[in-house]
Write a protein that binds this DNA or RNA. Structure first.
Length: 563
RNA sequence: UGGGGGAUAGUUUAGCGGUAAAACUCCCGGCUCUGACCCGGGCAUCCUUGGUUCGAAUCCAGGUCCCCCAGCCA
């Protein structure tokens, strides 16, 4: 595991933290309590990471606590599998809820009692109106709704009906419990919202104990109140629910009245951050699972090799505001590189091998060369790499007819083999079809270690592996899951899937030290990118995922000259 | 003439009446045993119109555009 510690980075300032600070200063809040409240109906993604970092971050920065609470009020979509995965992911992000693990279902009995309280005070009623008719009665965005004929039932009848709903006497959908607020309100959420529905479904935690379940609106605020949450932070789409959140707390004998604040959810270019769409990708097998490295899920990016610290760094850079926005995925890549660069060990791996033969190097001879594990950190130490007569370099590092700005190998050109010697390309070996199969070179024995005694320079330094001990590997290259920055903007998200988001390279050769790499921990393949061992690896047959590529100025130069 | 929100560089965010800041991207250049990292430099009529003011991204008034809400989902 990479760095699960919560770094003591400087707390970013935003409007929510300003509110918390002001509440603390004014004495309105004694001790801050926040919560992260996922519904266990899928895996966590980068959007949740923003909420997690915000809620746990605020608690940590202001000396408060943050609860993990599962909003498990809809058993139709929820599973234990997701409850487990969510805890694993939150922990991996470096967040600790301590003893404060809760479930909305812990409060089902209390919520039920409060529902009866509303009935007794004439503020809730049982409605037999079928869903279709209820929708009609609710009116439209511009027209007020009509009162349900069942709105005028007596308290006694409502109580009796509601108890029988709980007892399981009625089928799904037969009746609901509704709050009696205002069918003419401009806010649709106040047009007598449903508080309880009949659901004869087993719940992952309460089994078949209940045949009615509270809605989000009836569960969330009260759960916050029970836990004495001080600042209930959620995303902008719940803004319209705040009046209902407050109405319920004002009309119930709750132990506290938390305040809800909303921020803009995270959107990322070239991907989707909506559980609905991500679930679709998984169930329709457009990806291998929730942890497919192309997925924007926590499990996916972790498998890709992204350290938790990089996610936190990214979330910190993105900030928290109320303006709708879509963050450029390049910002994520940059945060990953910046996190990995100072710590990732350097290794050499050739993704698309091209044989290089050094004619003047003694046949059968090999020698050990010292290679630094990190260019800027001597404490990272060094390792030994084998040099020999036959090596492999990257196909991209050779061009028979190079353009002017091409610094790498070409006929007659001298370059440096990293940690090794200067070599000069003398001859290009081709097969019958004319394809380049090998390079015959000569080396300068005096340049051992990488520098020529006469001080002459080379334009390029190439990474390489020795034929004698290179280990074959599979390397998986990932690019954007979607081929446009705003998937689904034309209606169909799946139509925007990038068919080339996964490229599997099978003939790769990596230096032997890489066969002992720990799973999931990114190393830098010099000049190529950051890579992490995938759990699919077999003994002697490593599989690497590209976490993120290095910035590639040469690729840009090429692209620009072509264009 | 339903309700609720939002508009600052290509992208995110800061700025809270004193003359636009940071990160990312992009472009130019330097350095380099990774064309990486690093180091210079460049890139904004602050949605718009008018008003208040010595002074407005910030205050006021009108307009424009964008987002959310009509689940017995969350």
């Amino acid at each position: 595991m990479v760095d699960t510690e919560t770094t003591a980075t400087e707390a970013g300032r935003d409007f929510i933290r300003d509110i918390v600070q002001a509440d603390l200063d004014a004495g309105r809040t004694q001790s801050v309590v926040t919560r992260f409240p996922p519904e266990p109906n899928g895996f966590l993604h980068l959007g949740h990471a923003k909420s997690i970092c915000l809620n746990f971050g605020i608690a940590r920065e202001f000396g408060g606590t943050c609860h993990l609470r599962f909003d498990d009020t809809n058993p139709i979509k929820e599973e234990q599998l997701f409850i487990d995965a969510i805890q694993r992911d939150v922990r991996w992000l470096g967040c600790d809820w301590g003893e404060h693990l809760y479930y909305a279902s812990d409060y089902f009995e209390q919520l039920y009692e409060w529902a009866e309280h509303l009935v007794r005070t004439g503020k809730a009623y049982v409605d037999d109106t079928p869903p279709d008719a209820m929708r009609t009665q609710r009116g439209t965005l511009t027209e007020p709704g009509q009162n349900s004929p069942f709105r005028y039932r007596s308290v006694e009848e409502n109580l009796d009906l509601f108890r029988r709903m709980r007892a399981g006497e009625f089928p799904n959908g037969a009746r609901v419990l509704r709050a009696k607020i205002d069918m003419t309100s401009g806010n649709m959420n106040l047009r007598d919202p449903v508080l309880y529905r009949i659901l004869h479904t087993d719940h992952p935690r309460t089994g078949n104990a209940w045949s009615i379940y509270p809605t989000y609106d009836f569960a969330h605020g009260q759960s916050d109140a029970i836990e004495h949450i001080t600042h209930s932070v959620c995303t902008l789409e719940f803004e319209d629910h705040r009046p209902l959140y407050d109405w319920l707390l004002d009309n119930l004998p709750v132990p506290s009245h938390p305040r809800q604040y909303e921020f803009a959810r995270l959107n990322l270019s070239y991907t989707v951050l909506s559980k609905r769409h991500l679930t679709r990708l998984v169930t329709d097998k457009h990806v291998t699972g929730w942890d497919d490295p192309r997925m924007p899920t926590i499990a996916g990016i972790r498998r890709r090799g992204v350290p938790a610290a990089a996610v936190r760094e990214f979330i910190g850079r993105v900030g928290v505001a109320r303006a709708y926005s879509t963050v450029d995925v390049a910002m994520l890549d940059s945060a990953i590189r910046d996190t990995l660069n100072p710590v990732a060990p350097r290794r050499m791996a050739v993704l698309r091998p091209l044989k290089l033969i050094i004619d003047n190097y003694p046949e059968g001879q090999t020698e050990a060369l010292e290679a630094r594990n990190h260019p800027d950190n001597p404490e990272a130490g060094s390792r030994s790499v084998t040099f020999g007569r036959e090596l492999y370099v990257e196909q991209d590092d050779f061009m028979e007819n190079p353009p002017k700005k091409f610094y790498r190998l070409s006929p007659g050109k001298e370059v440096r083999l990293r940690y090794g010697y200067f070599v000069t390309c003398q001859e290009v070996v081709k097969d019958e079809s004319g394809a380049v199969v090998a390079l015959r070179c000569t080396y300068d024995p005096a340049s051992k270690g990488g520098n020529a005694p006469d001080g002459r320079k080379v334009q390029a330094t190439l990474h390489w592996v020795a034929a004698a001990d290179a280990v074959p590997a599979e390397i998986r290259l990932y690019s954007h899951l979607f081929n446009r920055p705003d998937p689904g903007a034309d209606g169909d998200v799946l139509a925007d899937l990038n068919p080339d988001s996964l490229e599997v390279l099978t003939g790769c050769l990596v230096e032997p030290s890489l066969s002992q790499a720990p799973v999931g921990e990114a190393v830098q393949f010099e000049r190529t990118g950051y890579f992490a061992l995938d759990p699919d690896s077999q003994p002697g047959r490593p599989v690497f995922n590209r976490t993120v590529g290095l910035r590639d100025t040469w690729a840009k130069v090429q692209a620009n000259t072509k264009g």
